[in-house]
Design a protein around this nucleic acid. Structure first.
Lengths: 341, 341
DNA sequence: ATGAAAGCGCTAACAC
DNA sequence: GTGTTAGCGCTTTCAT
């Protein structure tokens, strides 16, 4: 186990540690011969600099913290995929925490990551977070943060999101053009940027096609579909309306599959009785019954762009910053659940 | 940003750093009054020990490395879920790497993690790994490693697996009892422990029920279903047999969904023409067309038990060790794809 | 009961 | 071109 250190090399070669250090970093002031000697020996002994010592030295840990609602979710696991791939190539490692959509856990994770000295934070907000002090405070103290997917309006920094408005608009328009008149919207808590933007796209599509907007067709699920009963209740409410919907536009992975499950269990035929379009990155949309029409987010790409921005921020701190908001295109994949003929 | 250090406390309180250090660690040799003073001040200033300095001191990083084939996969993301939850509670953080089932990436990740000084490794082997030197070498140098799910026969250490034999046996038996006679098996490369064990369970079930074992009914997918064409080819071969199968037992998430996709595209009706049982943790098995009969692994639990074993190994290194192999029960969830009437 | 000093591995300012 | 030294934050002998 005992790893070889610069000191060992110095001793073996009868040099000082600084010379060795400089040689290894290919400093111009070192004699080429010495350099060669050192490098070859280091290579031969399989020397690896101790990253912890480096971290202690310049208080950089070459790691970034990621706080997301949950891992076991198609969208987020693809996001992580993108994050890891880029971070790895840029020499950073990634520490992942799940908030499970709880404000308290989000705060706890944030504090922990900061105490572990991450160089920056990548965050997708918990659905129940409304107070942003824990992030604002850190940013003021100079910690780079980039938000992605679920982003706060109130904080100025880089953000990477899907074009939720356009995605929702397209989904709703598609349902309208497939002949649906009473389109409901099953969505997450209104605090989320996602929710607001998707709701706006949905409304705009209705308006542009001369359909009335009816508040009672919009149901917010506090737990974003993770609690079955909540899901069921919301859908039951919709179905109990004097004019029940003939289509539902669902706003997330869990909400979509949850909704399909409830309809299936109630023996409501999709799309005959109710059409569905879901905002989801589920991998097997093709294989569902019926195959699911989906608004797909470029999750990998979102993850990649977010780390890039974060690492740029870490390595070139901006003073009076120009912050970017990147909005990536979603794509509507039409299958049978939307009843398109 | 500037975090408060022990030195700051010492200066503020007119004490030496060592006294402060001892007071904070509640050493018996410190005057209760001083102790109280220090602790209160530390609390008030929100002092947090610098974990990097601690790591450098005793060359423990309080982090564990995880190497798995891929994140964006139901089984593995649940596994990570379990791992993270326990590790977090025990004060460790988790660094995740994906091998993408490539031997080279597995080796590269291993080396990287070791150079980052993780305290231990949790590994699920890449499907193409046959040479285990990179792990053996580390273990001999004293690095604790625990394998899970895809484990090597040749290495002696703790291992956590699903009871693959029983799971496969049960799946196959279920197909037989549902009236199927020609049951094929679509699986991963034979090097994987999983593959061997599931194959054995499959064989045993056939034998116990007086059905012949026919080698041409078993297809190994080198890339485990991740390359569509390979999947297609394997299934095509099965279908072209003089006596094509009337059921397929698939050995993994990707293989299962891939198989369903191919059958669907070929307009082969499930389960009428071909029944399917899949070894998979896919979350929406219910919603598939048809609903999928599945052998489900206790992925969360497997992850949790594996970290526990690993951390135990890290904190109480065993000399002439007794190693555990934990084999956790799978459960067969019967739905329509297996044609059970 | 408290302080001084060394050391974990590395870098960099400052000698020479 | 190379060596000496101090310092990153903390723990831990060894003095007192």
């Amino acid at each position: 186990m005992e790893a070889i250190t610069i000191k060992d090399i110095a001793k073996a070669l009868n040099l000082s540690t600084s010379t060795v250090s400089r040689a290894l970093r290919n400093s111009y002031e070192i004699n080429p011969e010495t350099k060669k000697l050192v490098m070859e020996y280091a290579e031969r002994m399989n020397y690896r600099p101790n990253p912890i010592a480096l971290s202690l030295k310049d208080s950089k840990s070459k790691s970034i913290g990621v706080i997301i609602p949950e891992i076991a979710n198609h969208f987020f696991s693809q996001l992580i995929n993108g994050i890891e791939s880029i971070a790895y190539n840029l020499g950073y490692h990634v520490v992942i925490f799940q908030s499970h959509d709880s404000y308290e856990r989000e705060v706890a994770n944030t504090n922990y990551l900061v105490s572990r000295k991450v160089d920056g934070l990548l965050v997708s907000l918990a659905s129940l977070t409304t107070d942003l002090f824990h992030f604002q405070d850190l940013m003021e103290r100079g910690l780079p943060i980039v938000f992605l997917d679920r982003v706060p309006k109130e904080i100025e920094t880089h953000k990477v999101v899907a074009d939720n408005f356009a995605g929702a608009y397209e989904a709703t328009k598609h349902l309208i053009q497939s002949g649906r008149k009473r389109i409901a919207h099953l969505t997450s808590p209104i605090y989320l940027s996602n929710t607001t933007e998707r709701l706006a796209g949905y409304k705009q599509a209705l308006e542009d096609h001369q359909l009335p907007f009816d508040e009672s067709y919009v149901k917010y699920c506090h737990y974003g579909g993770k609690i079955v009963s909540e899901n069921e209740a919301a859908i039951q409410e919709m179905l109990s309306l004097p004019e029940p919907p003939d289509a539902i536009f669902t706003a997330s992975d869990k909400l979509t599959t949850g909704c399909m499950a409830v309809l299936q269990q109630k023996k409501i035929r999709i799309p005959d009785e109710i059409a569905i379009v879901g905002f989801t990155n589920i991998g097997v949309a093709d294989l569902l019954n019926p195959p699911l029409t989906a608004v797909v987010q470029p999750a990998m790409d979102m993850g990649q762009q977010a780390v890039e921005l974060l690492i740029r921020l870490i390595e070139h701190p901006q003073k009076n910053a120009e912050f970017e908001i990147r909005s990536l295109k979603t794509s509507l994949i039409i299958r049978q659940s939307s009843g398109h003929s």
